[in-house]
């Protein structure tokens, strides 16, 4: 016989639970004709059925947890990537701060500070290249 699947176990659990409830209904409907010991004996059978249902649900949940490990690992890997990306943004911002500072330099250049012009342009080119390269390598 093949092993129970999670769905089989859930369904069996439901059946045991419903059987226990049906037995209880019968026991109450027929209580006038039952002795105390018969009543107690049936009650214990019901308890056993209900506990068995719980045991089956526990087993089925274990099967689902086991089967979901691969998806869970992939999702955790995505989370790790997101965290690493966020760290990268912090570095990226430093590059942007540099670019912003260079625009400020460009402003200074327009004010007639001729000595600073070549250095400002080279620095701005470097900063822009770093940004473009960074975006390019991320999209590849």
């Amino acid at each position: 016989m093949e092993k129970l699947t999670a769905d089989d176990a859930f369904e069996l659990g439901n059946q045991f639970r419903d059987a226990a409830i049906a037995l209880r209904d019968w026991r109450i409907d027929n209580r006038g004709s039952l002795s105390r010991s018969q009543w107690d004996e049936l009650d214990e059978r019901e308890i056993t059925l209900l506990n068995t249902a719980s045991s089956l649900y526990t087993g089925a949940i274990g099967l689902i947890l086991r089967d979901s490990q691969a998806s869970l690992a992939r999702l955790q890997s995505s989370v790790e990537n997101a965290k690493s990306t966020i760290k990268h943004i912090a570095k990226f911002k430093q590059a942007l701060d540099l670019a912003s500072a260079l625009v400020l330099f460009a402003g200074a250049v327009t004010s007639g500070n001729a000595a600073g012009i070549p250095a400002a342009i080279v620095a701005l080119e470097d900063a822009a290249s770093a940004i473009v390269n960074s975006a390019g390598s991320e999209s590849s």
Binding site: A6, D7, F10, G13, N14, R17, A20, I21, R24, I47, L50, A53, S54, Y57, T58, A60, I61, I64, L65, D67, S68, S71
Partner: peptide, 20 residues
């Protein structure tokens, strides 16, 4: 998977508790 655990396992198990 989580929703299946809830709908097919945890809620039916709580109905067992209710019957108990």
């Amino acid at each position: 998977a989580t929703r299946k655990i809830i709908k097919s396992g945890i809620i039916p198990d709580l109905r067992v508790e209710s019957a108990m």
